[in-house]
Amino acid sequence: MTEQQESGLQRLAGKYLSFVLGGESYAVQILKVQEIIQMMPVTRVPRTPPFVRGVINLRGKVIPVIDLRRRFELADREDTDRTCIIVAQVAQGEAMVVTMGVIVDEVAEVLDVRSDGIEPPPAFGSAVDTAFLLALAKVSGKLVMLVDIDKVLTERQVAAVEQLSR
């Protein structure tokens, strides 16, 4: 690994919110998280990609929610009472910040990821498309995948919507 890459990884150190999806641990930067809410009725929006579960009413504001299982191409599962929506603020384009929800199996804890525990994402062998991962992190002996939430919620989405509507 070059030094540049390394210093890039070091910058990822900080507080993360970890969550569980399909039995594995993931985490998102806590600064991106606006709030965590309980699962609520979601209105399906036709002509959107399958990973868009639909829209919800977040105190009067309509926001889209993404099914992270479908986004990561994991098997579907019934919602349980531990199923949560992580409401995140993601950057879209240059200057726009968009609020979106992400449905996860359950929310775990807040982690302190230290710079010496961060490794680059594996080129293969992961259950998840590595394009969505920022890095791997070891926190108290456990492996956590750091998710690039901006990419999860924005990339290729518009294209996908357009494709479907054809």
Binding site: P41, T43, V45, P46, R47, T48, V52, G54, V55, I56, N57, G60, K61, V62, I63, P64, V90, Q92, M96, V98, T99, M100, L153, T154, Q157, V158, V161, S165
Partner: peptide, 27 residues
């Protein structure tokens, strides 16, 4: 009328959302 949120962009055939009296979103 409410926008569906910038995250979704324009959805063909849908003008927006509305909060229904049961608190869910109607399209």
């Amino acid at each position: 009328i409410k926008s569906l949120g910038e995250g979704l962009g324009k959805v063909t055939g849908i003008a927006g959302g509305a909060i229904m009296s049961d608190g869910t979103v109607g399209l």
